[in-house]
Nucleic acid binder design. Structure first.
Length: 244
DNA sequence: ATACATGTTGGAGC
DNA sequence: GGCTCCAACATGTA
């Protein structure tokens, strides 16, 4: 469920919690939940796939991983990792990772890496990628230090849209091609956000989960690739593999 | 019903 | 040390 855009939507869905005081907190998360009691939620932020619930002297970093879910003003039957109740609202998080952080979120995360942040910097991402010439571009697009919020769908779509083959190493890519990939990561992530909001995301995917290339109609390749062997969809005809 | 997947970490083994 | 593989976590969908 969660790549970066889905976490932005979650953050927006929790808008009503901002400025609210925590009246009740519970859950199976291995943190000291009593810390939160009677504290005021100052803001909600997202960085990549992380949701941040910020208090005065600490914040919660919630990551839904692959299977995490949440309910707002509703409950599942299973026990939540974290439940926060305020005067008007309740949120429940399940199957997620919860960390209590005592640092300043400004210092913890590189906000220029967040593909959905106003502070996203393609130039910085470009430099980080160039510092790893041997890394496959399909791995770069899953690296949260370079493109925080990009996941396997965004990876596949950005490569298809920029016509770059996933098996290229960074050093094989021309400056123009690498720039194009990074541009598509952000612009597709923005489309992902809008489509997900309208619940029409899957019908707009051109590579991920698709059988054939929408450009040339030949069958797409579907194969595990890269360090983590994530399923990768690509067109051998339309996506260029540069010579090394 | 069984299989698979929008994610990440840590450890084993080489 | 670095790389790869694997397990673990745990839920929705087809």
């Amino acid at each position: 469920m969660p790549e970066g855009p889905s976490i932005v939507l979650l953050k927006e869905a929790l808008r009503n919690f901002e400025g609210q005081t925590v009246l009740e907190v519970s859950g199976t998360a291995q943190i000291d939940l009593s810390e939160l009691k009677r504290k005021t939620i100052l803001s909600l932020k997202s960085w990549g796939k992380h949701l941040l619930i910020c208090f005065n002297t600490f914040f919660l970093d919630i990551h839904l991983m692959m299977f995490g879910t949440y309910r707002i003003n509703q409950r599942r039957t299973t026990a939540p990792r974290l439940r926060i109740r305020t005067k008007d609202n309740e949120v429940n998080f399940y199957a997620c990772r919860v960390n209590l952080m005592r640092e300043d979120p400004e210092e913890v995360y590189d906000w220029s890496a967040d593909i959905l942040s106003k502070r996203w910097s393609a130039a910085k991402a470009w430099k980080k990628a160039k510092a790893e010439p041997k890394t496959l571009i399909c791995d770069v697009l899953l690296d949260q230090n370079i493109v925080a919020g990009s996941g396997n769908i965004i990876k596949n779509e950005a490569l298809f849209l920029s016509r770059v083959h996933p098996a290229n190493r960074v050093e094989q890519l021309s400056a123009v091609a690498l720039k194009r990939v990074l541009k598509e990561v952000r612009s597709f992530a923005q489309d992902f956000y809008a489509w997900k909001k309208q619940q029409v995301l899957t019908r707009h995917l051109k590579a991920y989960g698709c059988a054939q290339c929408p450009r040339c109609a030949i069958p797409l390749h579907k194969t595990p690739m890269g360090k983590t062997r994530r399923i990768t969809f690509f067109c051998n005809n339309c996506q260029k593999l540069f010579k090394s």
